[in-house]
Design a protein around this nucleic acid. Structure first.
Lengths: 194, 194
DNA sequence: AATAAATGTTAATCTAGTTTAATATTATTT
DNA sequence: AAATAATATTAAACTAGATTAACATTTATT
């Protein structure tokens, strides 16, 4: 697979010359992962910021009791990384694991400064996508505070219908911050209602 | 008050020449607000990204039932804005109100592109601070999921001892996503414990 | 086709945090 | 100093969601 989807995605934010595309391609790598493989493990230094060409990943955190808390899913045209670990090069809080065979574009920490130096527009590009990610994260906090579990599920189903079909229920429950049993109850309630 | 605290803050990320500082100063404004005044109101277009020189603000959301949910407090050397509204120039989800008389450096939406064009380093600067804000936001989601209300309060008290003293308890409860009554209960429990 | 592994459901019991409502304390204004 | 407004506490009754445990269904493996 080519990095075409990445270039198309980037063209929504910045215009790259063909020279710049060549330079970019010389600095990034495309890597395949199998279902179940880890891209980052809690405690590792996260070396890459990744763009998903195909497949699906989950980013999760293991708490003291061995409970898994899913922070996000990433599918085609999304990013995945432990940003905190990546920018400071300190041990990661999160695990990132493939839920399907996946292909990722890898932006290594070691080359990203070269990219910014050579193509300053990329600084703008990453500023803009991280702004969006921050806004999405704030909105999620608001939903966590102001919506019931049922309404959060309805919102998720509404916003990410494609993700819901690709992922087991118990992971969606974890993403929503509720137990799989309670999500099951919510779903049976919803069936009775309509 | 001068913008000295802002320049010092920026020097942690980028080096500006004195010409660049002059240009920056020509584009930003410093504005005073009184306690109680709003910087942004839900539904407005957020025109500014603000750096706090002095004082304190709260960013909050009013839900359908008229319940106030506080997302963040901003004190000296912090930023405040409805980022979602600012970057897309669409109606704000949040209110930002001063809890004390405050002085803010105002980065207007209308001039920020001029700043990026004239001083590309600023693109880097804002990329880096928004990266940090995103990481902090993700970590907050994790805490919401994995800590009890009591542990979240202890974390807050530990991380922001200065903020706790400046702000009424009921606002801290709102920030933590619990009722003021329950926070009161947690505090009395903590007193019994030690 | 049979077995095992992964995923999903149901129901009873339990608990962290909410709601309501009354009262106490502290700060502000006259 | 008194009165008012703002903030904080306490306690009883309640509820959304967790826990536990047994069972059902679907998917993958041999």
């Amino acid at each position: 697979m080519t990095i075409e989807p990445l270039l198309k995605y980037m063209s929504n934010y910045i215009d790259l010359t063909s020279d710049e595309v060549v330079f970019l391609e010389s600095k990034i790598t495309v890597r395949k992962y199998l279902k179940g493989q880890y891209i980052v493990q809690q405690g590792d230094i996260c070396k890459f910021s990744c763009f998903v060409l195909s497949g699906c990943t989950k980013t999760f955190y293991m708490d003291g009791e061995g409970q898994e808390h899913i922070l996000m899913f990433s599918i085609e045209d999304w990013w995945t990384s432990d940003m905190g670990s990546f920018i400071t090069q300190t041990p990661a809080d999160f695990n990132i694991q493939c839920l399907e065979n996946s292909e990722l574009v890898m932006f290594s920490y070691d080359i990203i400064e070269d990219l910014y130096r050579e193509i300053p527009k990329l600084e703008r590009f990453f500023r803009q996508i991280i702004e969006k990610a921050f806004v999405a994260s704030q909105k999620r906090i608001v939903r966590n505070f102001s919506l019931s579990a049922k309404d959060q599920y309805l919102y998720f189903r509404d916003q990410y219908p494609l993700i819901e079909q690709r992922i087991p229920q118990y992971m969606i429950a974890s993403y929503l911050g509720i137990t799989k049993e309670f999500l099951s109850k919510i779903k049976s309630q919803l069936i009775l209602e309509q």
